[in-house]
Design a protein around this nucleic acid. Structure first.
Lengths: 216, 216
DNA sequence: GTCTATAGTTGGATAGAC
DNA sequence: GTCTATCCAACTATAGAC
């Protein structure tokens, strides 16, 4: 094929790796398969990456970045706080459910990383990035809905990350989009229950709780 | 080695498979490694199981069963509902955090199953079993604390499964036991907020909410 | 039932021609 | 920079002796 500067070749190979791994699983993302997907020969990959782990790590970094940018969508702006929160989670879910392969790959990378000390940082990084994304998500949400959270932002964002992970994993298993959305709605109510209207007059926030829990 | 009836040999090999896979990961659980762990030769495994998938499926079934039985502990009995709920989640977590390898293996099996149609039922089964365990957990909890849940039991148990999955996954990544417990405490408050005291006189339950959400 | 031996694949990694 | 050819290790699975 054509002669490319090594940096571009690397990017191309990383994209190919993501394509193969998202489609066929992390075990299928062999050096050979990636080379074939990119349309280059085996040697080229080893010229661009010292070994398979280096390629895998680069791929993990890129897919984490991609999953992040798609989850931080523009936030809906109008309506009551609980409506905005519900709508925001809906949008989040829309982005997630459209990328089944990537989501599954992300979990495969997580478990792979946990078993291989050489790439242990991958899963740590995934979590740090997710946590930071959730934090931004909640902060943007708070600004849009003009609310404050009644729990520390770290606790709230941790909850968001874990709930999201749990819902995605179950959805990957049962492919039940409705159940996932339903669960997220309940979670949205939980978030709403931990929101209080902002005020400029230093009032006691507790009395202005936006939404109490709604019993079914 | 000794000559064992095939059923016993199978059990022994399944245990060996769990040992290897919990310790070194699902990829390390090759037929060879399992045979070595069990102290038998390669051929024996293929005599007991048609192929690797059959062994893997048997292992998945067994580990799911084990994780289930350890998560359904005896429930604490005395105290207020919110105390009982918190204590129950603590006990649940104690059981989980003592079995790191098994937990990680469980997720490895999940992703593996999702990529291999031949064993696709494994992850479906995992989810069904978890869901059923959560349901029993919540029902026992309700009996002990003399409460009713204000959301359908299916919705509640789904939430428990997903929250648990998310917390465990994060804990596997960051090894932060404190953060995991903290998150579960918040989740316990959520559960408490969806509990209402049972009464024998048909009163309106909403007015007898055990615990409102506690703001931080 | 259990063993050894081996067939048949696949994949990581490198060497060397171009 | 890219290609082909090749080496070597590890794995699944089976055949056949004991």
């Amino acid at each position: 094929m054509k002669r490319l500067p090594i940096a571009e070749r690397r990017e191309q190979l990383i994209e190919a790796a993501i394509t193969v791994a998202s489609r066929d699983g992390i075990d299928a993302a062999t050096v050979r398969a990636v080379a074939a997907e990119a349309g280059v020969s085996l040697g080229v990959v080893h010229y661009c990456f010292q070994d398979k782990d280096e390629l895998l790590e680069a791929m993990a970094h890129e897919i984490t970045r991609q999953n992040l940018s798609q989850s931080l969508l523009e936030m809906p702006v109008s309506g009551d706080a609980d409506v905005i929160i519900g709508r925001a989670l809906e949008l989040l879910w829309t982005g997630i459910s459209a990328t089944r392969g990537s989501q599954l790959l992300s979990y495969e990378l997580t478990t792979y990383s946990m078993r291989h000390p050489e790439v242990r940082q991958v899963s740590v990084n995934q979590y740090v990035v997710s946590h930071e994304a959730a934090r931004q998500f909640l902060e943007t949400l708070a600004r849009s809905a003009r609310i404050d959270w009644t729990l520390p932002i770290e606790v709230m964002s941790r909850l968001v990350v874990m709930m999201t992970d749990g819902v995605v994993l179950a959805w990957l298993a049962d492919d039940d989009d409705g159940a996932a959305r339903e669960t997220l709605e309940v979670f949205a109510q939980f978030l709403s229950a931990h929101a209080e209207l902002q005020d400029g007059r230093g009032e006691d926030g507790l009395s202005r709780r936006v939404v109490r829990d709604r019993t079914a």
